[in-house]
Amino acid sequence: MDRFHTNTALLMATRAVSADLFGFSHLLKRSQLAKKKLPTPLALPAERRALARMFLELSVAFHETIFPVDQTPSEPDPNLAVLVVAVMLGHAEARPMTAGQLAAEVRRSRTTTKRRLDTLIELGVIECINGSYYLEPTRAREVPHRDKFDLILSKAFALLGPYLSKLDT
Results as ranks from 00 to 15, higher is better:
residue 11 L to S: 13
residue 11 L to E: 06
residue 11 L to Q: 06
residue 12 M to W: 05
residue 12 M to A: 15
residue 12 M to K: 08
residue 14 T to A: 11
residue 14 T to F: 07
residue 15 R to L: 15
residue 15 R to N: 14
residue 15 R to V: 14
residue 18 S to G: 15
residue 19 A to R: 07
residue 20 D to G: 05
residue 20 D to L: 12
residue 21 L to F: 07
residue 24 F to C: 02
residue 24 F to D: 02
residue 25 S to A: 07
residue 26 H to M: 11
residue 27 L to K: 14
residue 27 L to T: 02
residue 29 K to G: 04
residue 30 R to F: 11
residue 30 R to P: 08
residue 32 Q to V: 15
residue 33 L to C: 11
residue 33 L to M: 13
residue 34 A to E: 13
residue 34 A to K: 05
residue 35 K to D: 15
residue 36 K to N: 10
residue 37 K to G: 11
residue 37 K to A: 12
residue 38 L to F: 02
residue 39 P to Y: 02
residue 40 T to R: 05
residue 42 L to P: 09
residue 42 L to H: 04
residue 42 L to S: 10
residue 45 P to H: 03
residue 46 A to Y: 09
residue 46 A to C: 09
residue 49 R to H: 13
residue 49 R to E: 14
residue 50 A to R: 01
residue 50 A to M: 04
residue 53 R to C: 09
residue 54 M to E: 08
residue 54 M to F: 06
residue 55 F to K: 08
residue 55 F to M: 14
residue 57 E to W: 03
residue 60 V to N: 07
residue 60 V to T: 06
residue 60 V to Q: 07
residue 61 A to H: 00
residue 61 A to Y: 02
residue 62 F to L: 10
residue 64 E to Q: 10
residue 65 T to P: 05
residue 65 T to G: 08
residue 67 F to W: 05
residue 67 F to Q: 02
residue 67 F to V: 00
residue 71 Q to D: 04
residue 72 T to E: 15
residue 73 P to N: 03
residue 74 S to M: 08
